[in-house]
Amino acid sequence: MRVRIGPTGRPEQQLLRWMASPVLCSGGGAGVTAQQVVRAPDPQVGLAWDIASQRRTMTLDFRIDATGRPLSIVRRTPAENAYVPDAQDVVPAFAASRFAPGPERTGCTVTFTANLTPIAAAPLADVMAYTVFPTSGRAKAIADRLRMPGDDCADPEPAVLLRAFPDFKRLPDQPGYPSWSMVGYDIDRSGKPTRLRALAGSGTPALDVAARKAVAASRFERGARAGCLYFYYKRGTILPPPPAPEEDALRPAAATCPRDHVWDRKPVLTYPSGYSRRSIEGWAIVAYDVAPWGQTGNVRILQAEPTAEFGDAATAMIRNATFRAGGGGYVGCIDRVLYRIRRPGTPTAESAPD
């Protein structure tokens, strides 16, 4: 195993950004075609160790519906459960991306590759993106990278007398992804912000304007400062899934499982990791059998949207549940699991099997 050694002679973390390949689709009878991206995926920037033995690519198979939304997203890996380090946000981020509308496209694929860069050499916008949404704390190298020659706004930080905020409810909704804006400014001797400038962000012009106005309306203790930074962000609004089919539409003709289950150990739903942060909803249709002693088995995903990870979460839930013993066993049990969010940032799973 090889770890990158920095100029200090000690191992150093790198800034990690996932880069997407061109998206190609083979369905529709027109051969392999490249797809126009309307909203690019934005997997979270992170810190990682540059370990040569770790595989840092992830390939996804999916389809694109008529609105340009990627659906039926499945990871394609050499091993069924191969672990890809630092990739927790790749699939959720891709589920929130968009392509040009048109006829439904199938047989689509994209590959994400991890780009690792020393923090001191990383693009400033990437360093700021990590500062807004840190994944593993804030390394000293991050603070050093953000500080330009002559900056003194952190020596120490000036006391805030008034912190203004945008009216987030009036800003455009961003289904499935958070928006952010980093503002740079100086402070004059009276404590008023001056020389405001938008430094980086998620490409949301309305938030950029509102962020600068909010900083301009803020006030600080007296004393001139240079090189101050402040960011605002808005959580992603709910991205609902496509309609889910009813269980009966997929129930086998030979099924013996009662529609009203009598649970001994009830299913406990857990929202798939990464999707609650982005407010992405989903569903899964799960089939399984039940042994005479009540243990579930032969659990399998029939359908899941927008990604297979909702199906993975649903099957794990069913495997840990049991029926009340004494029923003689069943085959062909079908349950539809809906993952819904009551409000941004507060996940809840509804319509659990009961």
Score class of each variant (00 low, 15 high):
Pro7Trp: 01
Pro11Cys: 01
Gln14Glu: 01
Gln14Thr: 01
Leu15Glu: 02
Arg17Ala: 13
Arg17Met: 04
Val23Trp: 14
Gly27Ile: 07
Gly28Met: 14
Thr33Met: 15
Gln35Tyr: 11
Val45Leu: 02
Ala48Phe: 05
Asp50Trp: 03
Ile51Tyr: 01
Arg56Ser: 08
Thr57Lys: 10
Arg69Ala: 14
Ser72Trp: 12
Arg76Gln: 12
Tyr83Leu: 13
Tyr83Asn: 06
Pro85Asn: 06
Gln88Val: 12
Asp89Ala: 11
Val91Pro: 07
Pro92Phe: 08
Ala93Lys: 15
Phe99Cys: 07
Ala100Trp: 15
Glu104Met: 14
Thr106Tyr: 15
Thr106Leu: 14
Thr109Pro: 02
Thr109Met: 13
Thr113Val: 14
Ala114Pro: 13
Asn115Thr: 07
Pro118Ser: 01
Ile119Glu: 01
Asp126Tyr: 02
Val127Ala: 08
Met128His: 13
Met128Trp: 13
Val132Met: 09
Thr135Tyr: 05
Gly137Leu: 03
Ile142Pro: 01
Ala143Thr: 11
Asp144Asn: 11
Gly150Cys: 03
Cys153Asp: 07
Cys153Phe: 15
Ala154Cys: 14
Ala154Ile: 14
Asp155Tyr: 02
Asp155Ser: 06
Glu157Met: 09
Ala159Ser: 12
Val160Gly: 04
Leu162Met: 10
Ala164Phe: 09
Lys169Arg: 12
Asp173Asn: 13
Gly176Met: 11
Trp180Thr: 07
Met182Arg: 06
Tyr185Val: 03
Tyr185Arg: 04
Ile187Arg: 03
Ser190Glu: 10
Gly201Arg: 05
Gly201Ala: 07
Gly203Met: 03
Pro205Tyr: 10
Leu207Asn: 09
Asp208Cys: 08
Asp208Met: 09
Lys213Pro: 08
Lys213Thr: 05
Glu221Thr: 09
Gly223Tyr: 02
Cys228Arg: 06
Phe231Ser: 12
Ile238Phe: 04
Pro240Leu: 06
Pro241Lys: 08
Glu246Thr: 08
Trp263Pro: 00
Trp263Tyr: 00
Thr270Ala: 08
Ser273Arg: 07
Gly274Glu: 08
Tyr275Val: 04
Tyr275Gly: 03
Ser276Trp: 02
Glu281Ile: 04
Ala284Ser: 13
Asp289Ile: 06
Ala291Lys: 11
Pro292Glu: 03
Thr296Cys: 09
Ile301Trp: 11
Pro306Val: 14
Thr307Met: 05
Thr307Asp: 06
Ala308Lys: 10
Glu309Lys: 04
Ala313Lys: 06
Ile318Asp: 00
Arg319Pro: 00
Ala321Val: 01
Arg324Met: 06
Ala325Leu: 07
Gly328Met: 10
Val331Tyr: 09
Gly332Thr: 08
Gly332Gln: 10
Cys333Ile: 03
Pro347Ser: 03
Glu350Leu: 15
Glu350Met: 13
Ser351Ala: 14
